[in-house]
């Protein structure tokens, strides 16, 4: 949520409303203004309560138990184990998968969002927006099954292509691999990117295009020097959303690969459900804590880049 909010805050649309007034210091604000600020802050209480109960408390619990053994005694053994062997490999694979999935989805999603925002056909715009809303929230077993039925070993498309003389599996493709998962993830990541990017692209003012054109710039130069830099903060924010979405995806990967590819969410699920060894929940918590760290690093990286990229916002 926080990441999405940042994306909105930093969208070019938000730029238009910036005035030249200097914010007053807290001490300088009159009493009634301070009181109003406090009253306005009350509106955030439900959200803060929600975040506290469903995000903060579980996160603290995960991190705390990650430092304990099965008997509740303090230990670093869980982290030590999480940083080696199959678990380290799962982190590397998860990060690679999420990164490349997010990169592909970001590029395709931006191009699609640009196409949608520039079309004059309202029906196309409505269809893409509505469709993206649905597809961005589609995942899990049904999505895995639909891909198995289409491009699985005996999927409709696989069989059709084979009968036409092209055996995609003989050419190195496999749905049940990291490459296969990357493709499947695009199904929900690209629509998510479209949904996130349409508002900031729409907020780019036509006068900026006209002004650059009147100054002799080509459309490419406009995008290079104006459009892309202005869209960079929302693009980065969207990229982090895509990355974390792919990083945390569990059901689709589990249904498609049955745990044959080491991914952190699958390892956590396996440890918590005790499929391999009983009493390994604390190790699962250590992996969970590791996931939190990865997401936090991604968030900090975003904040750093956004700070450098958007000096004009301050």
């Amino acid at each position: 949520m926080a990441v999405i909010k940042s994306a909105k805050d930093t969208s070019p649309g938000a730029l238009g409303g910036l005035g030249s007034e200097t914010p007053q210091g807290k001490d300088a604000a009159p009493l009634h203004k301070r009181r109003r600020r406090w009253q306005n802050g009350l509106g955030a209480v439900p959200f803060l309560a929600y975040v506290g109960i469903f995000l903060l408390i579980p996160a603290i619990s995960v991190v705390t138990t990650a430092f304990q053994d099965a008997h509740g005694k303090p230990t670093m053994a869980n982290f030590n184990e999480a940083a080696h062997g199959i678990y380290l490999e799962s982190f590397i694979t998860s990060i690679k998968l999420s990164f490349f999935s997010a990169v592909i989805a970001a590029i395709v999603g931006i191009l699609a969002a640009l196409a949608v925002t520039t079309t004059s056909n309202r029906i196309v715009r409505s269809l893409v927006s509505a469709g993206s809303g649905v597809f961005a929230n589609t995942g899990g077993v049904p999505l895995a099954f639909s891909f198995v039925a289409t491009v699985g070993n005996f999927g409709v498309l696989t069989v059709f292509l084979k009968s036409a003389g092209l055996d995609i599996y003989a050419h190195g493709f496999s749905l049940y691999s990291v490459m296969g998962l990357t493709i499947v993830y695009q199904y929900f990541l690209i629509p998510l990117m479209i949904l996130i990017m349409i508002p900031p692209i729409q907020a780019l003012r036509k006068e900026w295009v006209d002004a650059s054109e009147s100054l002799g710039a080509s459309r490419l130069q406009f995008w290079r020097w104006v459009g892309i830099p202005l869209l960079m903060p929302p693009i980065l924010a969207a990229f982090i959303v895509l990355f974390t979405d792919a990083f945390a995806a569990y059901a689709t990967a589990e249904a498609l690969t049955s745990g044959t590819i080491p991914l952190v969410p699958i390892e956590v699920g396996s440890l918590i459900s005790g499929n391999v060894l009983a009493g390994q929940a604390n190790l699962g918590d250590a992996l969970g804590a590791g996931m939190i760290v990865v997401v936090m690093i991604a968030g900090l990286l975003y904040a750093y880049v956004q700070r450098r990229a958007s000096r004009w916002l301050r």
């Binding site: 070019p12 003012r205 006068e207 006209d210 002004a211 054109e213 009147s214 100054l215 104006v226 202005l230």
Partner: peptide
Amino acid sequence: AAKRSIGMVFQSYSLFPN
């Protein structure tokens, strides 16, 4: 427009904010 050698000023400033 890019080849007309014109300078244009718009109503809404239209400075590049970045």
